[in-house]
């Protein structure tokens, strides 16, 4: 499968997914670490892809959504942003709301 199709499938199949450097347990970059912590703070299940372990995704994700850096957080297949925006939304409470709605809708489907 083409790498862009593979990414498309991942963001479609997982209501909340983070592309990050490292894993939530062993993050390899402060930005990825903080974004993953915010998602964990939402108390929802989320998927992650360690881009350092998948060179093809590492190379191609920036052009998938025209966003140049990692991490990237997708909710319902749509890029919501990187670390700064995710933290901003966590502080305002929007991230908790959006992720809860997305995961709840997914369980009903």
């Amino acid at each position: 499968m083409d790498v862009l199709e593979r990414i498309k499938q991942q963001v479609d199949e997982n209501p909340v997914i983070i592309y990050m450097k490292g894993t939530p347990q062993m993050p390899q970059c402060g930005f990825s670490s903080r974004a993953a912590q915010a998602l964990q703070g939402c108390g929802i299940e989320f998927a992650y892809v360690n881009v350092l372990g998948d060179p093809e995704i590492f190379e191609n994700l920036p052009r998938f959504a025209d966003w140049p850096t990692f991490p990237q957080i997708y909710i319902n297949g749509e890029l919501i942003g990187g670390c700064d925006i995710t933290l901003e939304m966590f502080q305002s409470g929007d991230l908790q709301k959006m992720t809860k709605e997305a995961t709840a809708a997914n369980q009903q489907a």
Binding site: D66, W67, P68, T69, I80, G81, G82, D84, I85, E88
Partner: peptide
């Protein structure tokens, strides 16, 4: 929106982001 603002900054920096 925040995402649009970030994109505008990334676009302005162009190749430097690479």
């Amino acid at each position: 929106t925040p995402i649009q603002r970030h994109r505008m900054v990334y676009d302005a920096l162009g190749d430097m982001m690479k």
